[in-house]
Design a protein around this nucleic acid. Sequence first.
DNA 1: CATTGTCCCTGGAAGC
DNA 2: TGCTTCCAGGGACAAT
Length: 276
Amino acid sequence: MPELPEVETIKNSLEPRVVGRTFTGVKIDDTRPLQNLKSAEFRRRLIGKTILSLKRRGKYMIFILSGGDNLIIHLRMTGALLWNPEGEEPFARIEFSFDDGGRLLYTDIRRFGTMWLVSDASTVTGKLGIEPLDNSFTPGYLAGILDSRPTPVKSLLLNQERIAGIGNMYADEALFHAGIHPLRPGNSLDKAEIKRLHSGIRQVLKKGIRNRGASIRNYRCPDGQTGTAHEEFAVAHREGQSCPRCGGKIARMVVGQRGTYYCPRCQPLKNNSKGR
DNA sequence: CATTGTCCCTGGAAGC
DNA sequence: TGCTTCCAGGGACAAT
């Protein structure tokens, strides 16, 4: 499932391959991803445009084009962007071709993925919260997100309008890193815990990027290879395995309709609101 | 307004 | 073995 580190990896991988290239063709086998345009208009506005640069915002990939348009793609659960794939790709939905013969294939098993072609990117990404790897994301900023909210801390981390890019896997990893139970009310965290969570968020995201993302299910890099971040996960998708810190058994529960992995011993649920 | 629940979708796992 | 049922989950939207 592409979260911030996976989308960042895709961006880094595609950047040297597509920047400067001009769209020559768009083959649309599934119109479902197209959110704001019909196929013909989408194709017409794309062909002849050159990719000037790539950006990531939260879990969104943004292709900045000549002429002022932005191609924005969200891969949701099972979407992938493959560069010059070899052989037949199953679940191919949309194929972009370029003036140098290169091909960018959008595949998506479950068809949750979405894309837009808009002149103003903020119509799509405008409501997103802070980028957790920006310098402006400080422990104090995180405190503001958590403060006076009794909502489980994990649910707050997953709210894209507060912090953009953290998904289910990295939320679990960050909470483990900080030694915080996923159900702790956001407003019950003390200053030291917020600091640990802040550093946990940044560390697990950066580590995810270094490892080219986590291939828990269907995620692949544009070169078709899998990432290795999941091999270094402490708790995410590791129910029943040993906690790397205490050796105890990793447990699974449901928080906000999402499968949640944690170490009950390292992340105790105490009702502790001292100091706040 | 904030929060919770439902839905979308399909391969793979689990159950019978 | 083979069929059926259930599950995963980001985010839009509806309901509370």
